[in-house]
């Protein structure tokens, strides 16, 4: 039985991970070698492929663009979600109705909104800016973000809030010194979710930016295919360079990312 389990795991690893190894090996070959000896180790390791990419493409710049968008959209999304979740700890008129309004977007395939988003971002004057993209990401992810943070806050005992009021703290004081400090697992989960979503996104980034200065990593990868179509190994090298920082950061934080992704969801 145990053997069978390991066979399954290894088989799965092979299918999903061998392509990465193949890509890395191929990125050191010449175009000719790629076709003639697809599995062999490179005859001569073509470091030049990497040099070519690094001298012609500002990949670190794209990486910073993506990082900026991920951080800004996450900050906006999590702050808004936390504020509104706090409001829902109180009772007020039409509470269920308000909740429905701010979360119904979860069920909307937002790719249907490319025309309105394009014009909204234009009207706001944020077309072809990183902030415009971040704003849209925050908006699109907000309903799910609210649901994550609110579910967590719902588990906080109401007595804490009441006690804080008895101690003389008002609505704002109670939020900052009582609720906020114990809500961070929910906020962490929402943040990780938002960062991964923002990091991955291609459609809106392609739609809302145009110049090379605002290109995100994903948009850049999209263009690798056409830019390097004459020399595939160079395209592979570009790809390796584009994903290495992500892999390094992930391998340093993977435990935190995976546990944080679900920390706020399970109580």
């Amino acid at each position: 039985m145990k053997v069978l389990r390991w066979i399954c795991i290894l088989l799965f690893m092979m299918v999903t991970l061998v392509p990465f190894v193949w890509l890395i090996l191929s990125s050191f070959k010449t175009n000719q070698e790629l076709f003639s000896a697809p599995f062999a180790l490179p005859d001569k390791w073509m470091i030049e492929n990497y040099e070519k990419v690094l001298t012609s493409h500002p990949i670190p710049h794209y990486f910073l663009n993506s990082t900026f968008i991920a951080i800004v959209s996450t900050l906006i999304g999590v702050v808004l979600a936390t504020l509104v979740s706090y409001a829902f700890m109180y009772s007020f008129k039409f509470k269920a109705g308000w909740l429905l309004i701010i979360t119904f977007g979860i069920f909307i395939p937002t790719n249907a909104f490319i025309v309105p988003y394009y014009f909204i971002v234009n009207w706001l004057g944020f077309y072809d800016t990183l902030f415009g993209v971040a704003l849209v990401y925050a908006g699109v992810s907000l309903p799910l973000c609210i649901l994550i943070v609110k579910t967590y806050m719902d588990s906080i005992q109401k007595e804490l809030l009441e006690a804080s009021f008895i101690d003389g703290a008002g609505v704002h004081r109670s939020f900052i010194s009582v609720i906020l400090p114990i809500s961070y697992p929910g906020m962490t989960t929402a943040s990780i979710f938002l960062i991964i979503t923002a990091w991955n996104e291609l459609l809106f980034a392609s739609l809302l930016t145009q110049s090379e200065g605002t290109r995100t990593l994903q948009v850049a990868i999209r263009f690798f295919l056409s830019t390097f179509s004459a020399n595939y190994p160079v395209a592979f090298a570009a790809m390796v360079i584009a994903v290495i920082p992500t892999i390094v950061i992930y391998s340093l934080l993977s435990e935190k990312i995976i546990s944080g992704l679900t920390a706020g969801a399970v109580k």
Binding site: L83, V84, A87, I101, I120, A138, G139, F175
Partner: peptide
């Protein structure tokens, strides 16, 4: 005062879901 906490998210919902 709690409406202050509701408004920003509501504004985003209008801009990114209801209006679209």
């Amino acid at each position: 005062q709690i409406y202050l906490y509701l408004v920003p998210a509501l504004l985003f919902t209008v801009v990114f879901f209801i209006f679209p």
